[in-house]
Simulated scan of single mutants.
Amino acid sequence: MSSTPASEVGLGAAPSPTEPVSVVTEANFQSPSKNITCDLTTGAVRCEIVKRDWQPPPRPASCQLGWGHGMSIANGKADFVCAGDTVIGTASEVLPYGSALRAGSVQCYSGNAAMRCIDETSQHGFTLAVADYNLF
Rank of each mutant, 00 (worst) to 15 (best):
M71V: 11
P58L: 05
A131R: 14
V87L: 07
T127E: 12
Q107W: 00
N134L: 14
P32D: 05
N28S: 14
Q107M: 06
E48G: 02
A100F: 08
F136M: 07
K77F: 11
P56M: 11
G89D: 09
S62V: 01
I73L: 05
V87A: 06
H124G: 01
E26L: 05
A13C: 09
T37N: 11
V23G: 02
G104K: 07
V130H: 12
N75C: 03
G10L: 10
L11M: 12
V50T: 15
S122F: 05
K34V: 05
D132C: 02
S31I: 02
N134R: 15
A74E: 10
L11C: 15
G125T: 08
C108Q: 03
S122G: 06
M1K: 04
V106P: 04
V21E: 08
I88E: 10
T121N: 15
G68E: 13
C63M: 10
A27C: 04
T90K: 11
A44L: 12
D119L: 03
N112M: 01
S122E: 04
I118R: 15
S3T: 09
P15Y: 00
A83D: 15
S3I: 04
T127G: 14
T86M: 03
G84K: 05
P57L: 02
V45E: 10
A6W: 15
Q107A: 02
S2L: 06
L65V: 04
W54D: 03
N35F: 01
P96R: 04
A44Y: 10
H124N: 15
A83Y: 13
P58C: 01
C117H: 06
K34S: 11
V106F: 11
D39N: 14
P15E: 13
L135F: 09
S99E: 11
N134M: 11
G68C: 13
M1L: 03
K51F: 13
T4G: 02
T18D: 15
G84C: 02
F126M: 07
S33M: 04
G70H: 03
V21M: 09
S62Q: 03
F80G: 01
V130Y: 11
C38I: 03
S2D: 12
D85I: 01
V23H: 10
E120I: 00
I88S: 08
P57A: 00
S62T: 07
P15I: 05
C82P: 07
S92V: 14
Q64I: 09
V87N: 10
S110R: 05
I118F: 05
S31G: 01
Y109K: 00
Q123W: 02
A131G: 01
A91P: 14
S7A: 15
V45P: 12
E19I: 02
S22G: 03
L135C: 05
P32G: 05
G125P: 04
D119A: 06
V50D: 14
I49K: 08
G70V: 02
P5W: 10
V24Q: 14
S22L: 13
G10Y: 09
S92L: 12
G68K: 12
A113K: 14
V50I: 14
E120T: 07
A114T: 03
I36C: 06
P96A: 08
T25H: 09
P32T: 04
E8P: 00
K34R: 13
G68S: 12
